[in-house]
Design a protein around this nucleic acid. Structure first.
Lengths: 196, 196
DNA sequence: GTCTATACACCGATAGAC
DNA sequence: GTCTATCGGTGTATAGAC
């Protein structure tokens, strides 16, 4: 492995090596804790415990590091979703993931970055489409298995779960909870009706 | 008017003056077009057509400029919402605003910034709470006027409109439209049932 | 592979003249 | 009110030694 090619022909470190992962870990933590204004090569190096120069041995630009960070994260999330889909209450689990474990802060940061970095934008698009495709398949399969019918189509359910989960999550993080009890009760009722 | 006080006692320009507004306009445009990484005092000055130093005559820090930009924007949005609430189809109009005119890009930027700037975070919280309060009042008033009942409470409706509108908007901006037709049809059906 | 050293641009913020 | 000038800091990215 010689690593992905950057814009230059500079020699580069191996994708997937220990340092490579450590740098992505560092980048992810910085995004989560301090936001992307603080995501600099110097800080990543400091966190990992290497010199700044080494970041540019593994990534040709900071943007590339950011894109790789998102890519690794999205692979993990998709794997998790595939795992969930095999269970017998996929809708409930999709909702649990959307509402509880979604990291609203991290998502905000990546969304703002996607406005600027086109490669990241493409990864985000791919991620959304694959996620929704998997969710729709899981929901359809589960409804057939249980022979229940919903007034809402599977794509509509998937989209609503994602949107409500995201907003509730973000507002909770801000400390706002206006209307949350009502909406959570409604979702619970809906999920129970379809999956018991 | 002598302007708001910054951290220092440096003399400052008047809040609400022509230059003051021009700088907020510039900041808003930069956020929308280029993202907050590009929002610097030099670029704001360049856009407005003054020297960089003048930005610090009107705002004691860049963070203060950002907070004021959001504050002005939120006042405008709240005024618009109050206007809408007086009409006889508030639910439809709330949905129109949430789904169409919401600027997903700008919101992403402010959300990421709110993670870092505490004063902005407080403004965002206030804005969300006031918005939802107004929406709930308008929805309740309209439903009473028409003597219709919804299985969903007003806070739940307001929250759902906001969340779905936001996500659909953001995805449209990215170029994703998976499930959008379905969800828009459902919303349309719901609004029609309550407001004709 | 990892390092030292460094070029060069841009940033926020301030001093003080007019 | 608006300007010139400038400080100290930090950023990305590269050259080239070991």
């Amino acid at each position: 492995m010689t690593g992905i090619k950057g814009k230059s022909e500079r020699r580069m470190g191996p994708t997937g090596s220990e340092n490579w992962h450590a740098m992505l870990d560092g980048a992810e933590d910085i995004l989560r804790e301090d936001g992307h204004a603080e995501l600099t090569s110097r800080r990543v190096a400091e966190r990992v415990g290497v010199k700044q120069r080494l970041v540019y041995y593994y990534f040709s630009t900071m943007d590339e590091l950011i894109v790789e960070t998102f890519r690794r994260l999205s692979i993990r999330e998709l794997d998790r979703l595939k795992e969930i889909s095999r269970g017998d209450q996929p809708l409930r689990e999709i909702w649990e993931v959307s509402s509880r474990s979604t990291d609203a802060r991290l998502i905000s940061e990546f969304m703002a970055l996607a406005n600027r970095i086109d490669d990241l934008k493409q990864e985000v698009i791919k991620f959304i489409e694959e996620t929704r495709t998997l969710q729709v398949e899981a929901i359809n399969a589960a409804m057939e298995r249980r022979s229940v019918k919903s007034p809402l189509s599977a794509p509509a359910i998937a989209l609503m779960a994602a949107s409500i989960g995201l907003l509730v999550n973000r507002e909770q993080q801000l400390g706002v909870n206006f209307g949350h009890d009502e909406i959570l009760a409604i979702v619970e009722q809906f999920v129970t009706r379809l999956e018991g």
